[in-house]
Design a protein around this nucleic acid. Structure first.
Lengths: 208, 208
DNA sequence: CAACATACAAACAAGGCTGTATGTTAGTTT
DNA sequence: AAACTAACATACAGCCTTGTTTGTATGTTG
């Protein structure tokens, strides 16, 4: 019954896909490893061979998502006269489109959003929190740069602008994912982003 | 061992308090009824006497939170020349302060946010969703009224304004609750609300 | 082509937790 | 004060799960 390495990788992939499906449908807490195994067409033995336990399985699900290249964005923002708002708005749009078109991402993020973050999955949510912290720092720095360029309206501080942006994106995505995707996240999201960045810009040109 | 009615109510209250504490610390999924019973100084028998099961217990926890009087707010907005933005901003501020000062609310909402909404607790999250829907409709109607009064900046539609407001408040509260309350939600929240409503107002008077 | 490691399946052991059924004591009603 | 019932405690049955261990056939390597 021994499989070749390539076949094993495929098995692992099958398990991940099955986990995504089962966890999404039944919830991480209420789905058993047996459920996942059945859905993958293997036994629990296979799962425990490839993954240490359920938490590890969920973690690997999360790791299977390619994340946007942050360093690349950071480099774009390095230039002295970088168009901060332009870059940020574009990055936001790209993220929304990524989410809107990648169903795996949708399901996996739904799983993470719905799962009980205390206890066994604390590690995962902590990693997300750390990432969030980094994002906030980067965002704040970017807005500070815009402020230095005189482009940030006086009503905003770098921190308040960054916070608001994050809250909006998080709220948008959570609502869309948890709520049955009842609206067009790409179009409504881009819309919202555009409005938001318009209010950041110092003294809207009042183009009447 | 039979208790008087008043004592029984107290027992029930103790159980609710214990559940709040235990569920908050260990997570709803990973805490057993026995844990709750011990924390309350009773046995599981008492819990099952007062509550049907764990889901019911959580539901009653949620029900124990007094909710803002929405009809009252609606009435305030009914007046022909009502100050929509003023009322909404005040309501938002009041909600933030309520959350900031009521530790029970903080813990219970944290529990709800962290708990696995699929499966046994689906009913609760559905109720929240329904409430959210109502709020959205009310909000949209309010902004529509402001639009009718010529107070809503042309860049916004009632729907986009309402959505944005909700996303911001939700994002703000979730982050604060899930993230260890690492900032002053009352002050930062009011700040954000004020900025947001300023952008809603048609052509900010540019009070320089 | 041994010898070994890999990739699983199948069996096992153990436990924790839920829900319920039953027991018991003390209020409550008449 | 007897009869009834509310408010629990205790005991029980049973299930489902997890993690592990053992078995085994097959790649893989020297």
């Amino acid at each position: 019954m021994r499989r070749t390495k390539a076949e094993a990788k495929e098995t692992r992939q099958q398990i991940l896909l099955a986990a995504e499906k089962v966890f999404y449908e039944k919830g991480v807490a209420h789905a058993s490893m047996e459920d996942v195994a059945r859905a993958a067409g293997v036994t629990r033995g296979a799962i425990y061979w490839h993954f240490a336990n359920r938490a590890d399985l969920v973690l690997e699900l999360y790791n299977s998502l390619p994340m946007p290249q942050e360093d690349l964005i950071a480099r774009e923002l390095e230039a002295e006269n970088a168009d901060v708002f332009g870059v940020l708005e574009r990055v936001g749009r790209e993220w929304l489109e990524l989410l809107a078109t990648d169903e795996h991402r949708q399901r996996i993020l739904s799983i993470l959003l719905r799962c009980d973050t205390s206890g066994e999955f604390a590690a995962i949510s902590e990693r997300q929190n750390d990432l969030d912290d980094e994002h906030m720092q980067a965002l704040e720095a970017a807005f500070a740069k815009a402020e230095g360029q005189g482009k940030l309206d006086g009503a905003w501080t770098p921190r308040s602008a960054a916070s608001m942006l994050r809250w909006v994106i998080k709220g948008l995505c959570s609502e869309w994912l948890l709520f049955g995707r009842r609206f067009d996240i790409a179009s409504e999201g881009k819309d919202a982003l555009h409005r938001l960045f318009a209010t950041y810009a110092s003294h809207a040109p009042s183009a009447r």
